[in-house]
């Protein structure tokens, strides 16, 4: 599990440029699924056929269809301008903060390393992205090797701190790892399963929007990170690292369908999997657009408690991730 997470978090994949993550995931699960497809926007869809006669579907109907979603993309920056000396101006990709970006080392798709700094400012509170730049060590625009439209991500490797793991892009490669690990462990399940590794979640859950339409599922579960309230003077939130999988009640874009939420809670109780209930006041996941697809899709979220989201130091407890895998695996064996 740790090595799966390591491979995934250390792969380059800002929103809109998820190709390498897709290749890495595909390599991990290719021999464990019945089909593997890429749709028009770049979502990777791994299909596992439901066990015939194994239930799920109603009288005369085929097996029920369950969609699982974890997003491949991560936050980063995108170059908007290169000046004659080779300094790059940029815009954020996804919800990353200017103060977080300052002083970071970032890496581009072609391997170029850059460092982020700022113009001279009278007051630090004036810091905004349009006052900042990336320096890739070039002496001119021509020699920069990076041009307008190229994206970069935090340059950061995985590290173990105690029994916790810290890295960039745990959001949502840890979720991708949960899906990968579930596919590896899962026996024949009653329902048709669509494991979707989505694109462009960080810029508006766009990949989930189109893949949910294409799949037309009977139920959906997203696996994503969620915030915690267990650090000094944090905003109040009853989710902590190390206390198990978080089962979402609501966030800004979803009220988890009670049937899905209750299924997850019952499964966790039956299987003795540690869990905690999650109410996220700000933010959303792929389940937001999925649950309003077509005539509506009952949807829920299994969340991985994560500290310092959208920074290079996203930190998870590996036992929480393990609890998420067990919860998802047990739930899928049960079916709808």
């Amino acid at each position: 599990m740790k090595e799966t997470i390591r491979t995934l978090v250390e792969t380059f994949g800002p929103a809109g440029s998820e190709e390498r993550v897709r290749e890495a995931v595909a390599g991990m699960i290719r021999d464990r699924c019945d089909s593997l497809t890429v749709d028009a926007l770049g979502n990777l869809i791994a299909f596992r056929e439901g066990k015939r006669g194994g239930g799920g579907g109603g009288e005369g109907a085929g097996p029920k269809r369950i969609m699982l979603a974890a997003h491949m993309d991560e936050v980063g920056l995108i170059v908007t301008h290169v000046d004659e000396k080779g300094f790059m101006r940029f815009a954020p990709v996804g919800g990353v903060d200017a103060f977080t970006m300052l002083g970071q080392r970032v890496v581009f798709g072609n391997g170029a390393t850059g460092v982020v700094w700022m113009e001279r400012l009278d007051k630090m509170k004036d810091l905004r992205f349009d006052k900042m730049f990336v320096d890739v060590g070039a002496a001119s625009a021509e020699s920069a090797g990076v041009s307008v439209g190229d994206a970069a991500v935090f340059d950061r490797k995985l590290a173990q701190v105690g029994k916790r793991l810290t890295s960039k892009s745990m959001d949502d490669r840890a979720g991708c790892a949960v899906l990968v690990e579930t596919i590896r462990r899962l026996g024949p399940a009653p329902c048709d399963l669509f494991f979707v590794f989505t694109v462009q979640e960080e810029v508006g859950a766009r990949g989930a929007t189109t893949s949910a339409y294409g799949i037309n599922p009977d139920m959906a579960i997203a696996v994503d990170v969620t915030a915690v309230g267990d650090t000094p003077k944090a905003a109040t939130m009853d989710v902590s690292l190390g206390k198990g999988a978080a089962i979402k009640v609501k966030d800004s874009y979803l009220v988890a369908h009670p049937r899905v939420r209750d299924l997850l809670v019952a499964t966790a109780k039956d299987s003795g999997i540690p869990y905690q209930m999650e109410v996220l006041e700000r933010g959303g996941t792929d389940a937001g657009p999925i649950h309003t697809t077509r005539e509506g899709v009952p949807s829920g979220v299994i969340s991985i408690p994560t500290r310092y989201i959208h920074t290079p130091c996203e930190t998870v407890d590996v036992e929480d991730v393990e609890a998420c895998v067990r919860l998802l695996e047990r739930t899928l064996m049960k079916g709808v």
């Binding site: 749709d39 028009a40 926007l41 908007t80 301008h81 815009a91 990949g207 929007t209 189109t210 339409y213």
Partner: peptide, 20 residues
């Protein structure tokens, strides 16, 4: 050279199962 704003592409590319 700006990532501000949006146009009809914002809705078209999300239509049905996605449109390049």
């Amino acid at each position: 050279r700006s990532t501000m704003g949006g146009n009809d592409a914002g809705r078209i590319h999300l239509s049905r199962a996605g449109v390049p």
